[in-house]
Amino acid sequence: MIRASELDLAVVMSPPDCVEGTRLRRSQLVWVAAETLEPPPGASLPMAFSPKPCVNREVAGAALDAAPFEWHVVFTSVSPHGIRAAVLAGLAVTVLAREDVEPGMKIVDGRYGLPPLPSVDFSLIWSEGGRTECACRFGQLILEMPDLPVYGKA
Results as ranks from 00 to 15, higher is better:
residue 98 R to F: 10
residue 79 S to Q: 08
residue 29 L to T: 01
residue 23 R to H: 08
residue 65 D to N: 10
residue 68 P to L: 09
residue 75 F to D: 01
residue 26 R to E: 15
residue 68 P to E: 13
residue 66 A to L: 06
residue 53 P to R: 13
residue 29 L to I: 00
residue 57 R to G: 04
residue 24 L to Y: 15
residue 104 G to T: 02
residue 31 W to Y: 04
residue 92 A to M: 03
residue 78 V to R: 12
residue 103 P to C: 00
residue 104 G to Q: 04
residue 88 L to Y: 04
residue 72 H to N: 09
residue 93 V to D: 01
residue 46 P to G: 06
residue 43 A to F: 07
residue 41 P to F: 13
residue 70 E to I: 00
residue 58 E to H: 10
residue 73 V to C: 06
residue 69 F to E: 02
residue 30 V to W: 10
residue 54 C to S: 15
residue 13 M to G: 04
residue 108 V to T: 02
residue 43 A to T: 01
residue 55 V to S: 11
residue 90 G to V: 00
residue 37 L to M: 09
residue 22 T to G: 06
residue 87 V to E: 04
residue 65 D to R: 13
residue 88 L to F: 01
residue 19 V to D: 15
residue 34 A to H: 10
residue 94 T to W: 06
residue 32 V to G: 08
residue 27 S to F: 07
residue 62 A to I: 02
residue 16 P to H: 04
residue 69 F to Y: 08
residue 81 H to Q: 12
residue 18 C to S: 15
residue 82 G to M: 09
residue 97 A to C: 13
residue 80 P to E: 01
residue 104 G to E: 07
residue 39 P to E: 14
residue 31 W to G: 03
residue 21 G to E: 09
residue 87 V to F: 02
residue 32 V to M: 07
residue 71 W to S: 07
residue 60 A to R: 09
residue 28 Q to W: 06
residue 59 V to Y: 03
residue 65 D to P: 00
residue 30 V to R: 15
residue 73 V to Y: 09
residue 92 A to F: 05
residue 69 F to R: 02
residue 108 V to K: 07
residue 75 F to N: 06
residue 22 T to W: 15
residue 18 C to L: 05
residue 43 A to M: 10
residue 21 G to F: 05
residue 86 A to C: 10
residue 96 L to Q: 15
residue 106 K to E: 04
residue 76 T to S: 13
residue 28 Q to V: 08
residue 13 M to T: 04
residue 37 L to C: 07
residue 103 P to G: 00
residue 15 P to K: 05
residue 23 R to W: 02
residue 92 A to C: 04
residue 39 P to Q: 11
residue 92 A to G: 03
residue 89 A to K: 12
residue 45 L to P: 07
residue 105 M to Q: 15
residue 71 W to K: 06
residue 61 G to T: 06
residue 61 G to K: 04
residue 71 W to V: 01
residue 40 P to G: 03
residue 16 P to V: 13
residue 107 I to V: 15
residue 43 A to W: 12
residue 22 T to E: 11
residue 107 I to C: 09
residue 52 K to S: 14
residue 24 L to V: 05
residue 44 S to K: 13
residue 84 R to T: 07
residue 22 T to M: 12
residue 91 L to T: 01
residue 35 E to C: 11
residue 68 P to Q: 09
residue 68 P to W: 05
residue 60 A to Q: 10
residue 72 H to L: 13
residue 102 E to Q: 15
residue 32 V to I: 06
residue 79 S to Y: 09
residue 37 L to F: 15
residue 62 A to Y: 12
residue 106 K to G: 03
residue 30 V to G: 11
residue 105 M to S: 02
residue 60 A to N: 14
residue 76 T to D: 02
residue 52 K to Q: 10
residue 19 V to P: 00
residue 98 R to D: 08
